[in-house]
Design a protein around this nucleic acid. Structure first.
Lengths: 248, 248
DNA sequence: TAGGATAGCTACTCATCAGTATGATACAGC
DNA sequence: GCTGTATCATACTGATGAGTAGCTATCCTA
């Protein structure tokens, strides 16, 4: 009876039984393999906790979400959540990092592109928009300094600043290579980031557009501007030509 | 002894003694006048409570601000705050309304303008930006549905939607009268509002730019777009001419 | 100058929720 | 089979904070 508890115990989740099942089936052959699987299980569960937190924060807000809520969503108890993360603040922080990491990756990729700054900016903003529309968008955008300890707050601020500076740099380069209309990089970066960040406030999945589509639409809007262009295509080509000349 | 308590009681504020003093000096002549002054005093104090709440929410966030904090900032006790507002939610709501009202006014004024839709949109967005950069900007922008009762939430949503629809309408009109580059009004409105709303996240008074200056800068950025214009001034004039022709 | 209305305070209640103490179970390795 | 470690639950503590009960003082009107 005691040994059969695991099987009959309530509260086992698909999340747990899934990987645990495969582990039980494959781990017997090698002890090292087994312990590795165990570590992997832990990582998978930890990520599930973070995803559940992101989902809850996204729908109810950070302060309106209790760790009991998150635990209930995972069909486990609160101490189990604490077994994977040290506290609520760290949970928010992890969600934030999960959201911002793809954007940092986009910058790294863009840096290797041989193209005008405007095109590289396009690429970055596309990923940016998608990240904001993702499950972690809310946490990324709405993680308030006010809710975090000074240390975490500083850490998040520096990550945010890195993104901001990256956008400003691309804008400056674009103005220099002629691919971007002369502008104040700081204010323009604020405008771009603001418009994209705001997606997290209104976008919900199950909507007609995907995150990528929204990002693409926004980029077109930013690029064209409100003032009519006599010939948008010609202007685009002209911009590209200018940029090409500036880059040799 | 009992009657002298008021004089010696701690916690009297300038806010209270100021208006009360003038009322005492001028009210004797007419009872109606006096009661009017009293009502006015109450209104002044009520507004002070709302301003203090907005300030606190702005700096610490809604959830990190207790009504004790607000009371302390006003140098009164918590029940005094409850004497002027019924609960914390209503306080947030009042701050929201105070923030959004100037924008609704801007729409009313713009409606009477004899100008292209783009120029009218300019006017509205200018006020919009200023409102977001104001003391009530935070409450306006960050009042979350999640923090409010369904009734309040619905009320706020409808006010927000009114603004949104107003912007979309101006965009549609602009595309029709030729003063605005063809675009998806819904997405463009989201982009514009997002960029401006975001001001509330980074702007703090005592900064080098005023709210109006930021709004003006943003509008220029939106109007020009990122793609270089061969001759921005010529383009602007061309747009104006197109618009004029469309409006007869 | 009495009495009602206005304005405010002290001192509470009560609910929520982050975080923990303690103990039970299951699995890996010997 | 035995032991240590990993995993998880029950049941708590302690703090915070929204909102209130009940009292006091002051002002206005008659």
């Amino acid at each position: 009876m005691a040994t059969s508890r695991r099987k009959t115990a309530p509260g086992r989740t698909a999340l747990e039984t899934g990987p645990a099942g495969t582990s039980a089936a494959t781990a017997r052959s090698s002890p090292w393999r087994a312990s590795g699987e165990r570590a992997r299980d832990r990582q998978i569960k930890r990520e599930a906790v973070i995803r559940a937190a992101a989902h809850a924060f996204n729908h109810k807000g950070y302060h309106n979400t209790s760790l009991d809520d998150i635990a209930a969503a995972l069909k486990v108890s609160k101490p189990t959540v604490y077994y994977y993360v040290s506290n609520k603040e760290q949970l928010l922080f992890e969600c934030f990092v999960a959201g911002i990491e793809p954007i940092r990756g986009a910058f790294r990729k863009a840096r290797r592109l041989k193209a005008s700054a405007r095109v590289r900016l396009q690429a970055v903003l596309g990923h940016y928009g998608q990240a904001v529309a993702s499950e972690f968008g809310w946490c990324m955008v709405r993680a308030e300094d006010q809710d975090l300890s000074p240390v975490m707050s500083a850490h998040i601020k520096s990550l945010k600043s890195e993104i901001d500076q990256g956008i400003r740099r691309l804008l400056r380069e674009g103005v220099q290579d002629g691919s971007i209309h002369p502008c104040d990089p700081k204010m323009t970066a604020f405008a771009l980031a603001g418009a994209l960040n705001w997606i997290a406030h209104w976008y919900r999945e199950n909507q007609s557009m995907t995150g990528a589509q929204i990002a693409a639409t926004f980029i077109t809007i930013f690029e064209n501007g409100l003032i009519p262009r006599v010939n948008a295509e010609a202007a685009r080509r002209a911009g590209a030509a200018l940029a090409g000349r500036a880059r040799r």
